[in-house]
Design a protein around this nucleic acid. Structure first.
Lengths: 166, 166
DNA sequence: GAATTTTTGAAATTATATTGCGCGAATACA
DNA sequence: TGTATTCGCGCAATATAATTTCAAAAATTC
């Protein structure tokens, strides 16, 4: 059931809801060209099947006083699965860390962090991150500005690929 | 108007909508402890004031066939504002690039990219990114797995700070 | 402490979500 | 080729929710 391929209407639904997650079902149905009831059924199915993980308001962190954003590149001493998992568990418990991705190559993890100010971040950095067990080194870079921030999927490409394949 | 400080109910609203952006206004009102009409007015005001940028469905990229995620660290030859802006404009036009942040330090930009497969990403890398004007070097790291992905604001800390200050 | 402003919430209205069900297109099968 | 089966659509009806209106309460100002 989860491998059922999506048709053009499903993809349009995903695209529209990615762009505006609070659109009413009536409006969504109008945009994808079907009536409201089957549209709602499709949305529920897409949620069930895991294509839609959830819906979130996009909150302006700076407006809320989080002036500082930082990428932190972390290297560990030991990369055994046990140690990797241990670090991930730690990261999940740090509120300032919003994302934690394990990478290949020299860097083991990249963290996206937010902070109200630099002192707060420095304190987190020295007291928690660099001093965490198994952390070999941390390189940080402040975000100067953000030119693009569109999490999710490029539906232009989804459609290209759908047109090519079955 | 934009500097109006938020009260506890406003922050609760933001927190709830960040967690579930499709919650009905009735349910939201119940959770923050006021009735529906003033709750809706507050939400509209938060949107107006820019605290809420929008609402988005969180789509599972892998389910849609984007198996590959990559962080690309980009260094430019020339960092004049003109050149920085030119690169940002390019990045905004590349569908595979979902985020583009300008950083301090050695790396000028970090890009978060998605791709259906490795060949597609390699082609993008060689034909577009590394061959773009003014790009000195690009270091890429594949995302092995994601331990945490909660874009937005840690409301635990927002509340801490609100309790301290006025 | 009274006037003013702001925000609230009950009630009414409008719009939307959701359910139930018959229909038609597409597919499977004889 | 004709018929059975499946699937998904959309109309109609109902249940919920969003939104407006307005009078009263709370907060603020002078």
């Amino acid at each position: 059931m989860s491998a059922a391929r999506l048709d053009e209407i499903d993809r349009k639904i995903l695209s529209e809801l990615q762009a505006d997650g609070r659109m009413t079902n009536v409006e969504l149905a109008r945009r994808v060209g079907i009536s409201a009831p089957p549209c709602l059924r499709r949305v529920r199915a897409l949620e069930e099947m895991g294509y839609i993980r959830g819906y979130h308001a996009d909150i302006d962190a700076r407006e809320l006083g989080f002036e500082v954003q930082v990428f932190a590149m972390v290297r560990l001493i030991n990369q055994s699965e046990r140690d990797l998992s241990a670090f991930e568990a730690l990261a999940q418990g740090w509120p300032l860390v919003r994302e934690c991705h394990m990478l290949n190559g020299e860097i083991d993890f990249i963290l996206k962090c937010v902070s109200p100010d630099l002192p707060t971040f420095q304190r987190f950095l020295t007291e928690h991150l660099t001093s965490a067990p198994n952390v070999a080194s941390v390189k940080t870079s402040l975000v100067i500005r953000c030119a693009k921030d569109e999490p999710g999927v490029p539906f232009s490409i989804v459609e290209e690929r759908a047109a090519t394949q079955g």
